[in-house]
Amino acid sequence: MKLFIALFSGILFGIGLIVSQMVNPNKIFNFLDITGDWDPSLALVMGSALLLFIPVYQILKKMLKQPLFANEFSLPLKTLIDRPLIIGAGLFGIGWGISGICPGPAIVNVSAGDPKIIAFIFAMVLGMYISNYVNIALSKPKD
């Protein structure tokens, strides 16, 4: 059942990315181009997602002590706004702005077989491994 839910959620998430056109880099570029011919569509994507997620999360969190098909919720424990968060998010934004692609849409686009998507995923995996060295550098205390 756990695995079925993971598969179903993945399919549904992919459909959401396709319906909202998050999978189209041009749509991302025009959303980010606020001083040009701005296309605000993706603000509606995030807005409608959050408008549903925030209240339903609050309600279900109070109703359910644990997930329906698992023993516990795996939630991040970090609450600190630290240097890695700021630097990492900044770098991710630059990469997203350059390519118009973020991880979900890259994976959803794989089946079209475009070599650029495959190359993007290879570069992303390489970047993920390089990140270990960035993390080590950032974790060296200055004081």
Partner: peptide, 12 residues
Amino acid sequence: GGLLVGIGTRVG
């Protein structure tokens, strides 16, 4: 872009 997305999402 791919490299920066990879680095940025892990560090951030």
